[in-house]
Computed example of a mutant assay.
Amino acid sequence: MPTIAIHPSVDNGFKATNAAFLGGTLVCNCAINPVKVRIKGDIAHNHACGCSKCWKPDGAVFSVVAVAPMENVEVLENGDKLAVVDPAALIQRNACKDCGVHMYGPVERDHPFKGLAFVHPERFEEQGSANPGFAAFVSSIIESGYDPAKMDGVRARLRELNLEPYDCLNPGLMDYIATWTAKKNGVPAQ
């Protein structure tokens, strides 16, 4: 049985991380005048994402996405090539108009993730950023046309890669969202 491909940056094993990673430059796919976005510091909550909104390289079933504080994101070159993919979406995904790569996606609305920007770490020129630690929105790949009968195999492959599959976010992030919502709604802490 052939191995199920998840994403090029995880299928052949993870790259070495560097605890002292100080950030790097994300680069789109354009051979001429690529968009370059600087991320200061390391990323957090890196994960494989099956949602139908995240950018995926050709042939990938999942995206690989992480977050960084928006104040650590700076467009360095060719920002005029960026456009928001869906202005109504929570994540304002800024993609290159020429190659389609999503470069960064800030959360600007009142939400637990407000102030964060979603980025695709495989676009870093530099090596050493944190590796993916889980898989989110796994069932959502069906919405993009994946065969539901093959989902057990997908989950097994994710576990082989040490990416625990969830059909939402991992428990820590879900607890964070619920805690933020409770506080916002005035629910007293226990």
Rank of each mutant, 00 (worst) to 15 (best):
M1T: 11
I6D: 00
H7Y: 00
F14M: 15
K15Y: 12
A16V: 12
A16N: 12
T17I: 13
F21E: 12
F21D: 12
G24Y: 05
T25C: 03
N29I: 13
P34Q: 10
K36I: 09
D42Q: 06
A44I: 14
C49L: 02
C51W: 03
S52E: 11
V64I: 14
A66F: 10
M70N: 15
N72F: 09
E74G: 10
E74C: 10
E77C: 04
N78E: 02
G79V: 03
L90D: 11
N94A: 10
K97V: 13
Y104T: 05
Y104I: 06
G105K: 01
G105E: 00
P106T: 01
V107D: 07
P112S: 04
F113G: 02
K114R: 11
K114W: 05
K114H: 09
G115L: 07
L116C: 14
A117M: 11
P121K: 07
R123E: 04
G133L: 13
A136D: 03
A136G: 07
I142N: 04
E143A: 15
D147H: 03
D147P: 04
K150M: 04
K150R: 05
D152M: 08
L158P: 00
N162I: 04
L163S: 00
E164P: 05
P165D: 00
D167L: 01
C168M: 12
N170S: 09
P171C: 06
M174W: 13
T179H: 11
W180D: 11
K183V: 15
K183G: 14
G186C: 04
V187W: 03
Q190A: 15
Q190F: 14
